[in-house]
Amino acid sequence: MGQGGLRPPLQAGSSWQFAWLNLSVADMVVVGLMLVVFALALIMRWPGEHS
């Protein structure tokens, strides 16, 4: 049917495909950052004399 014809002005974003899972790299970066920031917030020492 010639569906190859439409031309979006930009490329599809990078994504990671594993079996049925198809996740965009940008989304995974966000989730990764959430985990990192949360872990840091748990681990990092709150400043101050309280120790």
């Binding site: 990078s14 198809n22 965009s24």
Partner: peptide, 14 residues
């Protein structure tokens, strides 16, 4: 089936 409902165009988080 590629999580399209929540995807953003290009390399942006959705």
């Amino acid at each position: 089936d590629e999580w399209g409902v929540m995807k953003e165009t290009g390399n942006y988080p959705g």
